[in-house]
Simulated scan of single mutants.
Amino acid sequence: MSIRVVLADDQALVRAGIEMLLSAEPGIEVVAAVPDGAEAVRAVAVLRPDVAVLDVRMPVLDGVEATRRIVESRAESSALPAVLVLTTFNLDAAVYAALSAGASGFMLKDAAPTDLAQAVRALAVGKGWLDPDVTQSVIERFSSRPSGPAHRDPRLDTLTAREREVLLCLTRGLSNAEIASELFIGEGTVKTHVNHVLDKLGVRDRVQAVVFAYEAHLVG
């Protein structure tokens, strides 16, 4: 079964180019390509795609607000998509706002076409995606934000000591293999712990687990 994608970008040439790239990939189908976030939200509601690929900056409704509305709608339907946001600049503040709004990843528009397809496939199976070139800048941006009033999220108390260690490793951008090496456990065990962390926190993927950790002041 094909991965169904809704694409939104206000630049017609860029939108057509991304649509062409994704449509050429086996197992990926672009079911709608629209010029703004409002139309993306409507298309998602009607077509129920697996992934929504949204430009951050668009007229009518930008990618951040479109992400927020799509994610909020998940309460009504678990079939709604993961969101991948696209940006031109890796330090665009809107990217961090989109991740906080619930996006499962982001990537730069100048990324390799194969990376875009890999990101779509990753999100379709519940994984997150951060552009490899700017992952560290994302982590640093979250960790440098003002902490604000202390707030302990009760979901932290559902984690075992080992699961909390694994979550802290995720905030450092470590892979399963790197976590296994650091904690002296097998990769299969790491995968199990990661799945438990995601389930207990009620988040879709590793990216949102990292966002949670910073929002809950577990790190930073």
Rank of each mutant, 00 (worst) to 15 (best):
V138H: 02
V138K: 05
I139H: 12
I139D: 00
R141C: 06
R141W: 12
F142Y: 13
S143T: 09
S144Y: 00
R145Q: 14
R145F: 09
R145I: 01
P146A: 12
P146C: 01
S147A: 14
S147Y: 11
G148K: 10
G148E: 02
P149H: 05
P149A: 15
A150H: 13
A150C: 03
R152L: 13
R152N: 09
R152G: 11
D157K: 10
D157Q: 14
D157N: 13
T158F: 07
L159S: 03
L159H: 10
T160M: 08
A161I: 11
A161G: 10
R162C: 02
E163D: 08
E163T: 05
R164F: 01
E165D: 15
E165R: 15
E165M: 10
L167R: 01
L168Q: 14
C169V: 04
L170M: 15
L170R: 11
L170C: 08
L170H: 08
T171A: 13
G173T: 07
G173N: 12
G173H: 11
L174V: 00
L174M: 13
S175H: 05
S175K: 11
S175C: 04
N176Y: 04
N176D: 14
N176L: 13
A177N: 11
E178M: 14
I179K: 06
I179R: 01
I179P: 11
I179G: 11
I179D: 12
A180G: 15
S181D: 13
S181K: 15
S181R: 14
E182I: 10
L183H: 01
L183T: 09
F184V: 08
F184E: 14
I185G: 05
I185S: 06
G186Y: 08
E187R: 14
E187V: 13
E187P: 06
E187C: 06
E187W: 00
G188S: 15
G188P: 07
V190A: 02
V190G: 09
V190P: 08
T192I: 12
T192Q: 14
H193P: 02
H193I: 01
N195H: 10
H196Y: 04
H196W: 00
H196L: 08
V197S: 02
V197E: 04
L198C: 04
D199V: 08
D199F: 07
D199W: 09
G202R: 06
G202W: 05
R204I: 03
R204F: 05
R204V: 09
D205E: 03
R206Y: 02
R206F: 00
V207G: 06
A209Y: 01
A209F: 07
V210E: 01
V210H: 00
V211Y: 05
V211C: 01
F212V: 01
F212N: 02
F212W: 06
A213G: 03
Y214P: 00
Y214M: 03
Y214T: 03
Y214W: 14
E215Y: 00
E215F: 03
E215P: 00
E215G: 10
A216W: 02
